[in-house]
Amino acid sequence: MIRLRHVLPIVLGACALGAMMATTPDFNSVFRPLRTTAPNGAAAHGRLLAVRFADWQTAQQLSFERYGATVMRDTQGVFLVVEFDISDVRESVRLAAAWQGRSGRRYDQTKRVDDAPSTVDTRQFHPGLEDRGRAVFELPPDEIEGGTLLLARKGPNILDSELALTPPAGSPARHNKLLRLEP
């Protein structure tokens, strides 16, 4: 009985320590942004702004004006063009957009349309001015349905907001052979 009194605290301590070690979050989990998810039609509110999913469409080819010349892009997958409404901005902010497909894979906005009109890489959003942003992704076709749009402040985003916007159910109603991106 006396031996048990000595051994029991050690066993309990080891169990507690093991439980803590097993449940310790990894580095990425500790420092990742804090996600706020909004259902379709609702606005997601973050620390610096609120965003609502507005529209989406797909295209096989994109064209846009850059430095006075027309740029054409085509893809072996599909282009997904997403638009979102920005409101309630508290501080001028630049955004980074990503699409999380049904598989869980994350796709950043394609660099192939950098400097296209109104895409988030060219835009800065300011307080008091309601605005609309656009993000373009190049995806495998089966990653569109069931996906989520993710928006966060551009640059280091440790423990800041990440807004997850749910699109309407199903696939985009509009598919274009060629879509021209206008300002």
Binding site: E91, S92, Q124, P127, G128
Partner: peptide, 15 residues
């Protein structure tokens, strides 16, 4: 930066 009495912050345009 510019600030208003409500604490909103505007950064300079950079384009």
């Amino acid at each position: 930066s510019l600030r208003d009495p409500h604490g909103r912050v505007w950064m300079p345009l950079a384009s």
